Computed example of a mutant assay.
Amino acid sequence: MIYIFLFLLGAMLGSFYNVLIYRIPRGMSIVKPPSHCPSCKTPIKWYNNIPIISYILLRGKCPNCSAKISIRYPLVEAFSGFLAVLSYYKWGFSITALGLYVFFSLLLVLSLIDWDTFSLPEPLMLGGTFLGVIISVFREDFSLYESLLGILAGALPFLLIYLYYKKVRKFEGLGFGDVELMALIGSWTGIWGVISAVFLGSLFGLLYVLPILIKHKSMNFAIPFGPFLALGCFVGVVFDGWRFYLTGF
Results as ranks from 00 to 15, higher is better:
Ile185Ala: 00
Leu159Gln: 07
Gly205Met: 11
Gly186Asp: 08
Ser196Phe: 09
Phe103Trp: 11
Gly128Lys: 05
Leu163Trp: 09
Ser111Tyr: 01
His216Lys: 15
Glu146Cys: 05
Ala78Ile: 14
Ile50Asn: 01
Ile2Thr: 12
Glu77Ile: 05
Met1Asn: 07
Gly60His: 09
Pro43Leu: 11
Leu207Cys: 12
Gly150Asn: 01
Trp192Met: 15
Asn49Glu: 03
Ser39Ala: 14
Val76Asn: 11
Leu20Tyr: 02
Val76Cys: 06
Ile44Cys: 03
Pro25Arg: 13
Leu148Thr: 02
Phe204Pro: 02
Phe118His: 14
Asp116Thr: 03
Met28Ile: 11
Leu106Tyr: 15
Leu110Ala: 02
Tyr101Asp: 00
Thr96Asp: 14
Val102Met: 09
Cys40Asp: 12
Phe225Leu: 14
Ser29Ile: 05
Gly201Gln: 05
Ala78His: 07
His36Pro: 02
Gly60Trp: 06
Asn64Asp: 10
Met219Asp: 06
Ile50Glu: 00
Glu180Gly: 06
Ile24Ala: 04
Met28Leu: 15
Met28Ala: 10
Pro227Leu: 03
Gly193Asn: 15
Val109Trp: 02
Phe103Cys: 08
Ile44Asn: 00
His36Phe: 03
Val209Pro: 01
Pro224Asp: 01
Leu152Pro: 03
Leu9Cys: 08
Tyr3Met: 04
Ile4Glu: 00
Arg23Phe: 03
Ser147Ala: 15
Phe234Ala: 15
Phe104Cys: 09
Leu106Ser: 11
Phe138Asn: 12
Gly173Ile: 05
Leu9Trp: 12
Ile134Leu: 12
Ile135His: 10
Ile113Val: 10
Ser94Cys: 06
Ser35Asp: 03
Ile134Met: 13
Gly175His: 08
Gly128Asn: 10
Lys215Cys: 01
Trp242Lys: 07
Val133Tyr: 04
Pro38Ala: 11
Pro25Lys: 09
Leu112Ile: 09
Leu126Arg: 05
Trp91Asn: 08
Val168Thr: 06
Cys40Leu: 03
Ala97Arg: 04
Leu181Ile: 08
Leu174Cys: 11
Ile56Leu: 13
Ile53Cys: 06
Gly177Arg: 11
Gly14Asp: 12
Gly132Pro: 10
Gly186His: 08
Phe158Glu: 13
Lys68Asn: 07
Ala11Thr: 13
Leu229Val: 13
His216Asp: 07
Ser187Cys: 01
Ile21Thr: 06
Val109Phe: 04
Ala84Thr: 01
Phe158Ala: 15
Gly175Ile: 13
Ser147Leu: 08
Met1Asp: 09
Leu246Met: 15
Leu107Ala: 07
Tyr89Leu: 14
Leu144Pro: 05
Phe142Met: 15
Lys68Gln: 10
Gly154Arg: 10
Gly132Leu: 08
Glu77Tyr: 07
Gly154Cys: 13
Phe104Glu: 05
Asn49Ala: 04
Ser187Ile: 08
Trp192Ala: 02
Ile2Val: 15
Glu180Pro: 00
Gly132His: 04
Gly127Trp: 10
Pro74Arg: 09
Gly128Ala: 09
Glu122Pro: 05
Leu159Trp: 13
Ser35Lys: 07
